[in-house]
Amino acid sequence: MTQRALAKSVFVTPSLLAKLEAAQRVPSEEFAARVDEVLNTGGLFGRLWPLIMKYAYPSWFRPYVELEAQAQIIRSFELRVIP
């Protein structure tokens, strides 16, 4: 399947698909599910998506992502009306 045909099948632009393949953009969970369906991979991309998300952020920021996932409430205080 060509890149253009896959992009059309999963409802993204060819340029976005190229960026996803080059790891310049992070795929959505919905994108992973569509690729699994179109390529008949048995859910491979869906199973890999949590791992991709774990390493999608810089190493210094990853502990905060894990803390946010465990948080029951997140409060934010801003000095301006629009943060």
Rank of each mutant, 00 (worst) to 15 (best):
L17A: 00
L39Q: 11
R47S: 12
E78P: 01
P27M: 08
T2N: 12
L17W: 02
L16D: 00
E37A: 15
A32V: 03
V10D: 05
L39K: 10
I73P: 00
Y57R: 14
P50E: 04
R75V: 13
I73E: 12
W60M: 07
R62Q: 14
E29I: 03
A71C: 10
V38N: 05
F11R: 03
L67W: 10
L39A: 14
R80W: 07
L6I: 05
L44D: 07
M1T: 09
Y55E: 10
L44M: 13
E68V: 14
I73A: 14
G46T: 14
Q72W: 01
E66N: 01
P50W: 06
E78I: 01
K8A: 15
K8I: 00
A71F: 05
L79E: 11
M53K: 15
S76H: 11
G43Y: 06
A5I: 06
P63I: 10
N40D: 15
G42H: 11
L79G: 15
K19T: 00
L67S: 12
A71Q: 08
L6P: 07
D36H: 09
P50Q: 09
Q70S: 13
T2D: 14
F11Y: 07
E37V: 07
S59V: 14
F77D: 02
L20Q: 09
P83D: 11
L44Y: 15
I82L: 13
E37W: 04
A71P: 10
E29H: 03
Y55K: 12
V81P: 02
P63R: 09
S76M: 09
F11W: 01
S15L: 03
V10Y: 08
L16T: 11
A32F: 04
S76N: 06
F61M: 13
V10H: 06
K19P: 02
M53N: 09
Q70W: 04
Q24F: 00
A32H: 08
S28F: 03
Q24P: 02
R25L: 01
V26T: 15
A32G: 07
E29R: 12
E78K: 07
R4G: 02
I73K: 14
I82E: 15
R47C: 06
L67R: 15
R25Q: 11
I74E: 09
K54P: 00
E78Q: 06
E30K: 06
V81M: 10
V26P: 02
V26Y: 04
V12C: 07
R4S: 12
R80F: 01
R25S: 11
R75E: 10
K54Q: 15
V10T: 08
A33G: 03
E68Y: 14
A71I: 07
S28D: 13
A56H: 08
T2R: 12
M1E: 02
L16G: 03
D36R: 08
V65C: 01
S59G: 02
V10K: 02
P58Q: 10
F77H: 08
A23G: 05
L20R: 05
V38R: 13
